[in-house]
């Protein structure tokens, strides 16, 4: 089944508040519930558009603003395979890696909303089937690949109990 890109109106500096409104910050919500409220203040029924394995695409400094781990958790719970952006906020980046939301860095000017995308994670190439162009994705460090394979740092630790083999 083909997978698609999802973009929102804003391109650069998308904040954690925009990803998930502040009222969902407490731990009383399950991840599946959080996923239904992603971008609810700025986009119409965003979560209904996203299918398992799709991609979210943004410009620079994605995830800036208040350090709220729920934003990364909620995006992951929508079923996205990865977020693709030009750059990320540092704290959001950490939160995403801990939560197991895959973040890729790449040129995103030539990806529109609902373009058909395909990722070769081994060769670090992103194919835009709708436009017939390919992009080079910044390779993920080895440690990060291991974290992602487990579903994030927390899941990695649940699995292995420690970072033993990584130090």
């Amino acid at each position: 089944m083909p997978n698609f890109s999802h973009r929102v109106r804003k391109q650069n500096d998308i904040t954690t508040d925009c990803i998930l409104p502040e009222k969902y910050k407490f731990n009383t919500w399950t991840e599946k519930e959080l996923a239904q409220h992603v971008f609810e203040n700025t986009e119409e029924a965003f979560h209904e558009k996203v299918k398992e394995g799709d991609f979210f695409v943004a410009g620079a400094n994605f995830g800036c603003g208040p350090s709220r781990e729920q934003a990364a958790l909620a995006l992951k719970a929508t079923g996205l395979r990865a977020v693709i952006a030009k750059s990320y906020d540092r704290i959001f980046y950490r939160n995403a890696v801990n939560a197991g939301l895959c973040l890729l860095e790449c040129e995103t000017n030539y990806i529109d909303d609902m373009d058909e995308l395909d990722l070769d994670a081994e060769k670090n190439i992103l194919f835009n089937r709708s436009k017939g162009v390919n992009f080079e994705v910044k390779p993920m460090p080895v440690i990060m690949r291991k974290f992602m394979a487990s579903g994030g740092v927390i899941e990695y630790l649940k699995q292995y109990g420690d970072f033993e083999d990584l130090v």
């Binding site: 540092r90 801990n98 440690i143 974290f147 630790l157 420690d162």
Partner: peptide
Amino acid sequence: GVGTTDLAIALATGKSWFI
């Protein structure tokens, strides 16, 4: 200064990941 999950990771393992 780190976030709460990062701190929990350090508290559990005595280690953390850094860029």
